[in-house]
Design a protein around this nucleic acid. Structure first.
Length: 693
DNA sequence: CTTGCAATAT
DNA sequence: TATATTGCAA
């Protein structure tokens, strides 16, 4: 049927696919022979040459001599891509690239250089049977080929940026079916009769909001200012061919939702903070953030912008109680903690009780109407935190499909940093921020930060509502954030997957040494963190429960093994106890006991992440996401003795394990509802706390 | 005409 | 399920 029509249309061929004049080029005689054989089996008229130059020569001699060219990519005398380019330029013949290498990059290159198809050796005859379609495709609309290549170029621009990173991660797409040519062909065959809608009328290709594209988008938005950032203007600024206003509008829509979400997280955090009774804390002012509606205004005011040392950043320098204080009902917790801290080790044991007790104070949670809400809040917090890290623009693009390879994301992560013009970056404030052990978020308009040094626990939310030109700063800060908070990126966060891992690592190694050396531990709201640091500050044990865990990659960190061996027992004891508070009904925690037994002395800095056994099971090592891992690694490096271990929840200390903070929270909520757990538990979790011993 | 929301499609 | 696209009203 199709063939019939084609034949009719192209009268030149008696039996259309048959007799297709193919020029096969391959420097490898064997491959060439094989290819020739296969082509002949398809009853094509085959001409072969082992030299690209020769092929070019033949083509030039008589442009109408061939219908299609199949060329190897790697050839000694001329790069296959060069040939491809020349052919495309000079004779507009469909060229099919051939290579033993299925590297998406090559495929990409071939396609972008105008190849209509890319076959991987060994070529199967099935693939050759259809190559004639490319010929038909070209013949129909005269200007077709040009359009196509133009379109592809656009796509590249739009989605991939120079590196084509986004595509690299997508083998499937890049595979033999990558080019939409194929699609067109299908369409064509479907509605053969409609010649008009063949090439140019391609269905709108779904825009892939790659990192690069999103970066542009964000840059544009930042430049315009959130208030003036309307689709049309953004589009103009982005200056991306092929991108439509609708595309931008859609993305903007999503982006706004994202911001809003963040905003609300911040708000809630603020409320939380307020609810927790952080009176003297600058956080109090966070109440102003209550209305997310206002975030723009706030952002626009610039009050929050670019403040490494934001007025809203709280610094609680008191060694001990501070953290808790900001995190939990101050009166109850603080005393305990302080005491504990001074006593060194048993802090954790007491912390929990303290918290629980504190939590029982309903008034503290006035602003937290219901457990449900709390739960919700928690969730949001989680998201927010995730956002911290990845709040960077990176979040906005379609990570899932585009970047399946985390490494790809990492590699491109740097691109998230809009930075060149970022004041923050320029003046190095960000470093300062981090060195302080704080979240870069300070620059963010809305920041809730709980901080205590030298042991600090921070909860920071950065809505990233950027005022004009300030966005970048915020985002950047956010980007660096991961070092500290890395843990909690909810997998559900649409924007989260694209964490700027690179930057994280880089920062750790270069920018964040101070941070690393800093004994402080930061806990995000998504984490429940307990930090134990001996009086010398040399030893720290941190327990973290959070969503973090779900993103963790299975790969264990090298070097952990030993340390783990050394500390595992202690850790287990300590954290087992510590953790026990989670499922436990009671306030009394064995945690203290655990530490006491061990004399609470750890000879290294230990970060423990408490979480339920992940899907992978109760591995001793926490499974971290790349970011977390990198963070940890950095810490380990800097500290020399670092142990990151996943709570095994063993020894029956923790009856139940939670995969994520969410789960944990849910459980807690339930418990809470049952009256076995108080709101305070949420407070605890949400705000996390650290105990320094 | 543009924007932004909501429904729809993928 | 998430997100891009499309439709539609302001």
């Amino acid at each position: 049927m199709t063939v019939e029509e084609i034949r009719a249309e192209n009268g030149n061929y008696d039996n259309f696919p048959l007799g297709l004049r193919v020029l096969a080029v391959d420097d490898d005689p064997t491959c060439l022979k094989l290819l020739e054989t296969l082509l002949r089996k398809c009853q094509y008229h085959v001409t072969t040459t082992s030299q690209a130059r020769m092929a070019l020569k033949m083509l030039r001699e008589n442009k109408d001599r061939f219908d299609l060219v199949i060329s190897d990519v790697h050839m000694p005398d001329m790069d296959g891509f060069k040939l491809l380019e020349l052919v495309g330029l000079e004779m507009d013949l469909p060229v099919i690239m051939l290579s033993a290498n299925s590297d998406p990059k090559l495929v990409m290159k071939g396609v972008t250089h105008g190849a209509c198809d890319y076959l991987v050796k060994p070529v199967r005859i099935e693939e050759l049977r259809n190559i004639w379609q490319h010929v038909i495709r070209r013949k129909k609309p005269d200007s077709n080929s040009q359009n196509k290549s133009t379109t592809q170029d656009k796509d590249n621009q739009a989605s991939g940026g120079g590196t084509g990173t986004s595509h690299v991660g997508n083998p499937d797409q890049n595979g033999k079916y990558y080019n939409r040519k194929r699609k067109d062909d299908e369409d064509e065959s479907d509605d053969n009769g409609h010649e008009n809608d063949d090439p140019a009328t391609q269905k709108k290709q779904r825009v892939v909001w790659s990192i690069e594209l999103h970066r542009k988008f964000v840059a544009a938005v930042n430049q315009l200012g959130i208030e003036k950032a309307v689709p049309k203007r953004i589009l103009d600024l982005m200056n991306v061919e092929g991108l439509t206003r609708e595309n931008v509008a859609s993305h903007l829509q999503k982006y706004r939702l994202y911001l809003k979400r963040i905003s609300s997280v911040a708000t809630q955090q603020a409320n939380m903070a307020a609810a927790l009774g952080i009176k003297d804390s600058p956080f109090t002012c966070m109440s102003s953030l209550d209305g997310h509606e206002d975030f723009r205004t706030l952002a626009g005011s610039g009050r929050f912008a670019n403040a490494a040392l934001s007025p809203y950043t709280t610094r609680l320098n008191s060694p001990a109680g501070v953290n808790l204080r900001s995190l939990t009902p101050a009166t109850l917790i603080q005393p305990n903690i302080a005491q504990n801290l001074s006593n060194s080790i048993s802090a954790l044991g007491k912390i929990q009780p303290a918290i629980s007790a504190a939590n029982q104070n309903a008034s503290l949670f006035q602003e937290i109407p219901s457990p449900l809400e709390l739960n919700q809040l928690r969730s949001r917090c989680t998201m927010g935190i995730g956002n911290f890290n990845s709040m960077n623009d990176s979040r906005m693009f379609t990570a899932s499909s585009t970047f399946k390879d985390p490494r790809a994301a990492i590699g491109s992560s740097n691109s998230f940093i809009p930075a060149p013009n970022n004041p923050m970056m320029q003046n190095g404030d960000s470093q300062l921020t981090f060195s302080e052990g704080e979240f870069g978020n300070q620059s963010s308009p809305n920041v809730v930060s709980f901080k205590a040094e030298p042991y600090n626990i921070s909860v920071s939310i950065s809505p990233n509502f950027l005022d004009n030109g300030k966005c970048n700063e915020n985002w950047q800060s956010a980007i660096q954030f991961p070092k500290l908070l890395s843990n909690s990126l909810p997998s559900t966060d649409p924007f989260h997957s694209q964490m700027p891992l690179n930057s994280v690592r880089d920062n750790n190694s270069s920018n964040g040494p101070e941070l690393l050396h800093n004994p402080l531990d930061i806990s995000s709201t998504t984490m429940v963190s307990a930090s134990l640091i001996d009086s010398r500050g040399e030893v720290q044990c941190q327990g973290v429960v959070g969503d973090v865990l779900h993103n963790m990659s299975p790969a264990p960190i090298q070097g952990w093994g030993e340390q783990k061996q050394n500390y595992s027992q202690n850790l287990n004891n300590a954290f087992g106890s510590f953790n026990s508070h989670i499922p436990s009904n009671g306030i009394g925690s064995p945690l203290g006991q655990g530490f006491d037994q061990n004399n609470g002395i750890f000879n290294g800095k230990i970060d423990m992440f408490l979480s339920g056994p992940s899907n992978e099971g109760a591995s001793t090592l926490i499974q971290q996401n790349e970011i977390e891992k990198s963070t940890t690694e950095s810490r380990m490096r800097s500290n020399g003795n670092f142990l990151l271990e996943q709570m095994k929840l063993q020894g029956g200390l923790v009856p139940q394990s939670y995969h994520s903070l969410d789960d944990l929270m849910n459980v807690m909520v339930k418990r809470e509802q049952n009256g076995t757990m108080s709101d305070g538990d949420f407070g605890f979790d949400n705000y996390s706390f650290g105990a320094v011993i």
